[in-house]
Design a protein around this nucleic acid. Structure first.
Lengths: 242, 242
DNA sequence: TAGTGGTCTAGACCACTGT
DNA sequence: CAGTGGTCTAGACCACTAC
């Protein structure tokens, strides 16, 4: 007899949506401070506690970062702490040297069936394919093949890639205004083919981790599809289950 | 000049600790309701909001489950929703049939170097080793070797295992009062050896996922170490990155 | 000292579940 | 209907950061 409001949404969630829209619109950029809770409360005509709850959730989602005494910041992949948010590979000895990204190839193509499905774009739409090697110290450990929608990544080229010292997502964020929010990985075990075994310096047929990742930006829009082959001779993929 | 309290802990965290202790002491068992927020507030002499914040965190930690209008419950592995909390394997076709656990062996032994380190017990301490097969429908997909501290799992035997229809953690919880709180998995790719290839019905040398898991109970105490070999011909390991 | 987020409280009201 | 968790508010005070 009740069940009156099937679309009930608490105030703080509406506020969350509004803040999200402001973020999406680029009102505050990654790494910058957003207005104080008091200011936002005034702007949206709600109490500070309601804004607080909205921001709490967004901080839990890794969209914002709170810093006591300073303010609330827009999360950024330029932050070195963000590097291992998506890269779960860990050296078996506790070596903490940061991995180094080496671009190998970068070319344009048209989306095939799989790429178009994964990226949610038309079959035949322009895409950019990027191959790169990840090294931990001197050891090649991961070889990635990365598929990007050409429309979004207009100016991407080998020159751009080679002139960038930070992480890939850091580049995407700074150069293309694209913020990677969440990702989903599908992991399988496969044998190394000829070219992969060359790149990773392992015998042909060596078991490797195949890690397929789809990465999403605001509004759950997929903007990257990649397949990485991980050599797990001296590294492992670490996953925390809670 | 300030920095007065290096061990400052907010009230709601102290309350959280108290509730945790009550849980650990078995004051409320898995699946049962805990007292209402009002009652707990009265018991601990704080406001309802403070209890609420403590419970919020524990719910986020998957220790408690809130049910509006009914109460707050102690999380339980008997809950069917908990099955896929630690098992991240998904069929490639959307088949949702629940996996079936088939115990193969169960014997007693003494902890070797690796087991003693992983389980935080003395070298040579009694342990129980358990082998089992996981099937999705008719297909064998995972073979597990599970190491348990003998002290805790006194009465565990093949008979007990075979007489249990639910999940392993559900058995541990019900039969041994052990609640699995969190786990850590280290994933690598390996080739199937002879006995594994037999059990999983795959050719020898087939690349498999090696998933080593350490599972913890209250107080970050490790109580299970297992190694699973996953056939990823028709399944994949799914991981959400946030 | 001023401004920020963090904690704690008390009270009002809403939504959901059972009887 | 009474009891539960869920939301929202307003105000006081604490902890941290900067100037």
């Amino acid at each position: 007899m009740t069940q009156e409001s099937p679309t009930f949404s608490p105030l703080y969630r509406q506020i969350k949506t509004l803040i999200l829209q402001a973020l999406e619109a680029g009102e505050w950029l990654p790494g910058q401070v957003i207005p104080s809770e008091q200011e936002l409360a005034a702007r949206f005509n709600v109490s500070q506690g309601t804004v607080r709850k909205a921001i709490d959730e967004m901080a839990a989602d890794n969209l914002l970062v709170r810093k006591q005494g300073k303010g609330t910041y827009v999360a950024s992949h330029n932050d070195p702490r963000a590097l291992f948010r998506f890269l779960r590979l860990v050296p078996m000895d506790g070596d903490l040297s940061h991995p180094q990204s080496l671009p190998l190839d970068c070319w344009r193509a048209k989306a095939g069936q799989e790429a178009s499905r994964m990226l949610g774009i038309e079959l035949g739409a322009p895409i950019i394919i990027l191959r790169r090697l990840l090294k931990f110290g001197a050891k090649p450990v991961v070889i990635d093949e990365i598929y990007l929608p050409g429309e979004i990544f207009q100016g991407l080229s080998m020159e751009v890639l080679q002139g960038w010292s930070g992480s890939l997502y850091s580049l995407f964020e700074t150069r293309f205004g694209l913020r990677m929010i969440r990702a989903q990985e599908r992991i399988r075990a496969v044998g190394a083919d000829r070219s992969t075994s060359d790149a990773l310096k392992v015998p042909e047929g060596t078991p490797l981790l195949s890690v397929e990742r789809v990465t999403y930006t605001y509004g759950d829009k997929p903007v990257e599809w990649r397949r990485g082959l991980y050599s797990t001779a001296e590294h492992y993929y670490l996953n925390e289950l809670n």
